[in-house]
């Protein structure tokens, strides 16, 4: 299959990938111990503590940041296209609020256990999608996409009020801070088992999205047009939707709420590489990974206490978004 250079703009994706790999290697070295200026191959060979720190904590955390960033950005890009709306992000359709509710439920009912939190968050993320889908099917007006979005807003609101109730009844000394911290998003608790637990789902979901990326262009058109071009838009969109929610649920289950990656990164990718998903989607994944990894590196190294990842992605993400809007349109037509 030839990749015709229909869009020559932007640096080759290869350089973006090289930048990501370089950044991953640098991130392995960033941290409070051993100090960067004392980090030599010799020191690493001798210092068992440093070895353990890097191999057991830093490497899985860095790799997880890459997976989460790539997934959230890819899911955002895909949802924006299948809903034909550049302002959609993976938190849509009750997915994020569902995950937050599930995590809080696990923290309150099942006490201190990372795995139950992760599993319930993922389960409720999918329940959020499921409810949105079922409600949308029963709504009697509007097009399918409008119904799905409206149902998603309603389901999100329900889960978010449920979350409010859970926070209200949570033990303010032990459970409430944990819920709050989870909702702020972060990778501080990630080690190899968490990385391994999300790897298959994320690889599967990303593979589906990447393989269907040209098809995605077609599905970004309105239903009737996509239909006239020989597709079954509802069915194909559903495949992409499930893949996008799968990687979002997996990401949210280990990282909590990491906002703005899914909304912002596709805009940057589109600005640099054009709208064609053949280039835009892989670019989104790479930029999403780079952005999230930089935020996580900053979060764990700027101050002695860790800054939650979600705070940094929102702060930097929203600022970048404003900057992009000021500079030249928003890269979308309205």
């Amino acid at each position: 299959m030839t990749q015709e250079p229909s869009k020559a703009a932007g640096p080759n994706l290869f350089w973006l990938a090289a930048l990501l790999i370089a950044l991953i290697l640098v991130s392995f070295a960033i941290g409070r111990y051993p100090p960067l200026n004392q980090l030599t191959p010799q020191r690493l060979a001798e210092d068992v503590l440093a070895q353990r720190l890097i191999l057991n904590l830093r490497v899985p955390r860095v790799l997880t940041a890459v997976l989460v960033g790539a997934s959230l950005a890819a899911a955002g890009a895909v949802l924006q296209m299948i809903f034909g709306n550049p302002l959609v992000e993976p938190g849509f359709l009750g997915v994020s609020q569902g995950a937050g509710f599930g995590a809080a439920l696990a923290i309150i009912l099942l006490a201190h256990n990372f795995y139950t939190t992760q599993i319930l968050a993922a389960v409720f993320a999918f329940l959020g999608l499921g409810f949105s889908y079922l409600i949308a099917r029963r709504v009697r007006f509007g097009g399918w996409i409008l119904r799905l979005i409206l149902a998603g807003i309603a389901v999100s609101a329900l889960f978010s009020s449920g979350l409010g109730i859970l926070k209200y009844v949570a033990d303010p000394l032990s459970q409430l801070p944990e819920i709050t911290f989870w909702l702020l998003g972060g990778l501080w608790a990630v080690t190899w088992p968490q990385f391994i637990s999300i790897l298959p789902a994320i690889l599967l979901g990303l593979a589906v999205l990447l393989l269907m990326r040209w098809r995605l262009n077609l599905l970004s058109l309105n239903d009737q047009t996509a239909f006239s071009l020989g597709s079954s838009p509802a069915r194909e969109r559903m495949i992409l939707l499930v893949a996008a929610v799968l990687i979002t649920a997996a990401s949210v289950s280990v990282a909590g709420m990491v906002s703005w990656v899914g909304l912002l990164v596709p805009h940057i990718a589109r600005r640099i590489y054009g709208a064609d998903a053949r280039h835009m989607l892989p670019a989104s994944m790479l930029i999403g990974a780079i952005f999230t990894l930089i935020c996580d590196d900053l979060g764990r190294s700027l101050f002695t206490g860790e800054i939650p990842l979600g705070i940094l992605t929102s702060l930097i993400g929203a600022s970048l978004f404003l900057y992009l809007m000021y500079r030249r349109g928003s890269g979308l037509s309205t």
């Binding site: 015709e4 229909s6 296209m81 393989l211 040209w214 262009n217 970004s220 589109r270 053949r278």
Partner: peptide, 26 residues
């Protein structure tokens, strides 16, 4: 909605000739 180039857009007319996972060729 999205800023496809005219060429990318017209290329979508080839969709019925391509398998769902295929990319358009030369």
């Amino acid at each position: 909605t999205f800023e496809f180039t005219v060429l990318d857009y017209v290329l979508l007319g080839r969709a019925p000739y391509l398998q769902p996972l295929a990319m358009p060729g030369a």
